[in-house]
Amino acid sequence: MNETATPSFPKHLLDFQDWRRTQVESLLETAQMMQEVLARPVKKVPALTGFTVATVFFEPSTRTRISFELAARRMSADVVSFSGAVSSTTKGETYRDTLRTLEQMGIDAYILRTDAAGVPHQAHRWLHKPVINAGDGWRAHPTQALLDAFTLREKLGDLEGKKIAIVGDILHSRVARSNAELLPMLGAKVVACGPATLLPGSLPGTTLTTNLKEALAEADAVMALRLQKERMDKGLLPSLPEYIAGYQITEERLRWARPQAPLLHPGPMNRDVELEGTLADSPRSLVERQVANGQAVRMAVLYHVLVGKKS
């Protein structure tokens, strides 16, 4: 058989610290091939027959879990799922106990979601099998960033020199952090914008601003982030109307961006908060496309992380 091998890949996806541009681009190409599989009448290939993956979610997230599980099943992997709550004491089972138990059952890869930053890294230290981060606290959500990049490239082509504005609660956003790692790697310029109390002091790969007009000016694409209502309770924001007045993406404000600049949102969306009502359903919105691409991207991630022995 012809052996056209892809560049060797990290056997985990915790964030993009260990990934190079060529690897990411190769993965996005694979995702393109997976799109073709998803367009067939039979949306399933036998590639991962014999592999078992576990989705281990310590924080509930139906959408991400379904996307990963479908991706795995369309690749013919067996899927088991574990949902658990973590307590702040060690009275219950620890992360390590849970993961080690699964390891004894012969899991080949772990898809991990937690409310705390760093658990995928910790799991990677404890386990001998690949760990895929499905979101950890405010830190990273690499498959979301990959599907965002994939969707943006689908629409804009090469991202070199493109300006992407990310708007909302940057401080608490793993989506913003992963995109801040990934998009600049692909040549894009990222401007992160939000209320002063929801911006970090610095974020490598981005320009930070509280000025929405500045952020949107000449932007090639605009990504709005979900606003967690609990930010108001912590005294970080006075009120929802206050956020909307300052930072909602409206039809009118979108005129600051390039004509036809597409609109992204990682979901789930608070209607009429992050985006003005009609925008989410307008032709400029790529929100549904993001969800569809999520599956292809996750299939590609599973392929690259699982196939081929550790180098």
Binding site: V86, S88, T90, T94, Y95, R96, D115, A116, G118
Partner: peptide
């Protein structure tokens, strides 16, 4: 602290 406690996540 116990090893188990230090193997909780960074928040806990």
């Amino acid at each position: 602290h116990t090893q188990d406690e230090k193997e909780l996540d960074l928040l806990r």
